[in-house]
């Protein structure tokens, strides 16, 4: 399984799990539900944090947190 950091920009994938319990507790109510589509859109001017599209909505997280989001291919 790959982490979100390893996925190129503009490629939609699915959230498989979040392996940091505290982070999962923050991201889950913000719509990062298991099975939801996630796509890296762009990075901030200095390369970090990144902006992601989750479903039809947008969140921003740091790369250090993105490495705890495990993803699988969309189908």
């Amino acid at each position: 399984m790959q982490t979100l950091n390893e996925i190129p920009f503009s490629k939609a994938v699915k959230i498989a799990s979040i392996d940091d319990k505290e982070l999962a507790g923050i991201l889950f109510p913000m719509g990062c539900l298991v099975g939801e589509t996630i796509e890296k859109i762009q990075s901030a001017p200095m390369g970090d944090p990144i902006m992601c599209r989750v479903g039809d909505h947008f969140i921003s997280i740091r790369k250090s947190d993105a490495q705890h989001i495990l993803v699988t291919d969309k189908n």
Binding site: E22, L23, M30, M51, H57, I59, S60, I61, R62, D65
Partner: peptide, 11 residues
């Protein structure tokens, strides 16, 4: 404590 930045980007 760990430093985090998680924020919603509204439309």
């Amino acid at each position: 404590e760990k430093s985090r930045f998680v924020i919603e980007i509204p439309i």
